[in-house]
Amino acid sequence: MTRLLPALLVLFLAVAASLVAGARALPLVEYARAFAAYDLANPAHITLMQIRIPRLLGGLVAGAALGIAGTVMQTITRNPLADPGILGINAGAAFTLLLGGLLLGQPDAATVTLLALPGAALASALVFMLGGGMRGDAGPVRLTLAGAALNAMLLSLVSAIVLLRQESLDVFRFWVAGSLAEAGARPILFMALLAAGGGLVALAAAPRIEALLLGEALSRGLGTRPGWVQAAALVAVTLTTSAAVGVAGPIAFLGLIVPPIARRFAGSSLRMQLLVSALLGAALLLMADALGRVVIPPSEVRAGIMTALIGAPVFIWLARRVRSGAFG
């Protein structure tokens, strides 16, 4: 429990920042009043209940989901550069979701959001297979480039669709940048259940994943079946990534940054790492979102762009160490 405390504290600060930051400054007393006596005529109450609270909830769901997805991916591939955005899983989820949304005309409906699942599942299976990531023997370079190739291919398909239907560009260009701004219109509760399902699978499989890391032969000796463990990891990554994409669109780099920090707080237990990742992922996304709201007022930088601008330098810093022996 004590290991969770620092992460909880960070999350608490991020929640506060997320509620306070914005174009409109709200008097603190209104926060209490909005909950106690909600007044439809009061613009402060409307801002809080219709804009900031949905954003907060969306950030909690998407951030926690991406933190878990990143930790599972980095652990099972033994690759510090693994992230749902970098490896093309976000793009897979976004592709099928957008395709369905454009064909049915409703990208934010709960049923359409389910379309993220097959795309994410296919992309994660593909990139792990092609990148050799499942056996954990692929170098980071190969896995990352395989992800880049997958991203590029899906992006080509998406831009073909978008360019075929000019009117869809207006939706698409905002959607694809990833943001919590539209969280209020997205099926948050449904996605929260999806993310929770993914998280539970990851937590349940955690000891088996740890056993697998000892080596295939040894893990078999401990009664672990590698194929099942890998499948469970894929399911966890698919569910969490789809949920995050459904709430916030494709947000990259959160799954890259969070796991190494979580490891510092959580120690060596994978279960504890997963819990801390969920807390820190939510905190980081909420902070990126809050920061994006205040950097260039009155307009805002979308959260996905903020995480990419923070994440790209982290990626480069990690990439520099890849061949210098730090990762073997």
């Binding site: 694809v176 930088v301 601008l309 994440g311 480069i316 990439a319």
Partner: peptide
């Protein structure tokens, strides 16, 4: 390493590009 760092620069430029697009 150059290739990986270049990919990272590519991530940063594409984030800025999508900012320009939005």
């Amino acid at each position: 390493t150059l290739v990986l760092v270049g990919l990272g620069i590519g991530f940063a430029t594409s984030a800025l590009s999508s900012f320009a697009l939005t």
